[in-house]
Design a protein around this nucleic acid. Sequence first.
DNA 1: ACCTGAACACCGTTCAAGT
DNA 2: ACCTGAACACCGTTCAAGT
Lengths: 262, 262
Amino acid sequence: MVAAERARRRPARASVWLEDKARRGGAARGGQPSGLDRDRITAVAVALLDAEGLPKFSMRRLATELNVTAMSVYWYVDTKDDLLELALDAVFGEMRVPAAIPGDEEESTADWRDQLRELAVEYREVLVRHPWVSTLAGNFLNIGPNYLEFSFAVQRVIRRTGLPMSEQTGAISAVFQFVYGFGTIEGHFVERCAAAGVSEDEYFSEAMAAVTQAPRISHVMEGSKALMEARGGDTVAEMFERDFSTALEIVIGGIEARVTAV
Amino acid sequence: MVAAERARRRPARASVWLEDKARRGGAARGGQPSGLDRDRITAVAVALLDAEGLPKFSMRRLATELNVTAMSVYWYVDTKDDLLELALDAVFGEMRVPAAIPGDEEESTADWRDQLRELAVEYREVLVRHPWVSTLAGNFLNIGPNYLEFSFAVQRVIRRTGLPMSEQTGAISAVFQFVYGFGTIEGHFVERCAAAGVSEDEYFSEAMAAVTQAPRISHVMEGSKALMEARGGDTVAEMFERDFSTALEIVIGGIEARVTAV
DNA sequence: ACCTGAACACCGTTCAAGT
DNA sequence: ACCTGAACACCGTTCAAGT
């Protein structure tokens, strides 16, 4: 019965990166009448996602941007999801990660703490620059080349913390799931401000006013007033900065404490 | 120009919880011919989201489930997004959180570490039980009554860590953004297994095989083989459990270290 | 007060046909 | 090899109309 159900649906590859035909290579452009290739399609998709957001992104909208009929894109890409996966990995390529140095497990003399901070900042920045990334990263398998490169860089750094191997995957979660969650919130906040056409600080105070006045919410906001104020920072940007860095230092400190305790 | 652009779009409330008409109260059913009310609509929406997932959820699909025409639902709810926000907060209501004890800031004698663990586990379980929650929680404002109750419980616990107030919001991020990210991954994994109709362990080994054989990926997987094996646990469920608890203990340890350092 | 039907402006994707 | 047009089976939402 299960087999029958699986047979009924289409192949359902779990990711573009698994057994994908990859039609055109991608380097040379202009061979085709329309100058289309995977790289250009992906680049325009990224631009469109940045400009208009994931909910408004459609194959038809993309096609008009490419001066092409909606169905031309399907020559290069099997489904919309495949294309989104390509766009996702493309922006992961923006992250600058330290390359592996073969034979040098110590990876120069850099402190693992500093390297972890740098990787966390790179990841956060991608999530904030491209708010649609968090939704996609949460829904796809994330096995594109650029994300894998990042994730192996993370593994190399964690290896040098001194944590026992059995705890290394947990430590990776503690750092990067936090960054993922934080970047998700921050990215969507920035996106909403841009969509509303107001500054972050304006949007924040308007939102606070709305929440405080809402009948079902106001009575319960009293308790967190003191917390909001103590959070520090004059601007929303400073608030984000402060929260991000204290959280990151808490996690790094937690790893250190665990290492020295052993 | 910005003002004009804002005027052109519809009011665009940022959340159902802000100035929503809330048409029918919700308690008494049967007054209406079809027995419809917000609570029933929300409950059926949750059931449908659980059963078929967010991408397949539509107002028309929901309406047929309610034995009603597609447009009837719009009497009770302004937009699909509003309904999704209601469904989101409804399942946040599944979390059991310690109630505030007025006047008792110490909140009995319970250890803040234990209380933090409990809250983290509750949140994680919601994310895994309802994989659609993470997408929605990432995209909405999360100011429904149930989520607020949870988030105030979190604030009360963090207050008792001994951290300076300026660092408390950061600590909250460290714990719950991690849980959010972790629950997102875990929830989607569980969902994919169910959709494919195989056990978690079967799905995992199939996925590992696929990834290891993929031409563009295999060469780079060598490095993480040792890590995967050292991670421990015979089953996927044990792996998740192990990673979650070591990560959580790292963060809790990080908070402790920061408190005693002050 | 509550519900329906028809309609509008969209979707992703298939398929046969063009060059 | 690459691109198009028409078509299918859907969407969310508006609006005028019913009871």
